Deep mutational scan, measured.
Amino acid sequence: TTVHLNGVTYTFPNPEEARKFVEKLAKTLNLKVEVHNGTYHIE
Rank of each mutant, 00 (worst) to 15 (best):
P15C: 14
E17C: 15
L29T: 08
N37T: 02
K20F: 08
T11W: 10
L25A: 03
K20N: 10
R19W: 13
N37F: 04
T39C: 15
V22S: 02
V22L: 04
T11V: 12
T39P: 03
P15A: 11
K32P: 03
K32E: 04
V8M: 09
K32F: 07
Y10M: 13
L29N: 07
T11I: 13
N30A: 05
E17S: 13
L25E: 01
V3I: 04
N6P: 06
K27H: 07
N30M: 04
N14M: 05
V35E: 05
P13Y: 08
E16Y: 08
Y40P: 04
T39W: 11
V33E: 01
V8W: 13
P13H: 07
E23F: 09
K32W: 06
N6Q: 07
H4F: 12
L31R: 02
R19Y: 09
T39Q: 15
N30P: 06
T39I: 15
N37C: 15
T28I: 14
N30L: 06
K24Y: 14
T2Y: 13
K27Y: 07
F21V: 02
L25I: 09
E16M: 09
Y10S: 02
E34P: 00
H41C: 15
V3L: 04
V33D: 01
V33K: 00
P15E: 09
N37A: 03
G38V: 02
T2S: 11
E34F: 14
Y40A: 04
V33Y: 09
V35W: 13
E43T: 15
K24P: 01
K20A: 10
N37D: 13
L5E: 02
K20Q: 10
F21I: 02
L5T: 03
T9F: 11
Y40N: 03
T2E: 13
V8E: 09
T2R: 14
H41A: 02
T2K: 14
V3M: 03
V8R: 12
V33M: 04
K32Y: 07
A26H: 04
E16T: 09
F21Q: 01
K27M: 08
E34Y: 14
E17H: 08
L29E: 08
L25H: 02
T9G: 05
H41F: 15
F12P: 00
G38N: 05
E34M: 11
T28S: 12
E43K: 10
Y10D: 00
E34S: 13
H41Y: 15
G38P: 02
K32T: 07
V33A: 02
T1E: 04
T11H: 11
N30V: 05
T11A: 09
L29H: 15
H4M: 10
K27C: 15
K32R: 08
T11E: 11
E43Q: 12
V33F: 14
Y40R: 03
L29F: 06
T28D: 13
P15R: 08
P15I: 07
A18G: 03
N6F: 15
P15H: 11
P13V: 09
E23K: 05
P13D: 09
T1P: 06
T39R: 08
N14D: 11
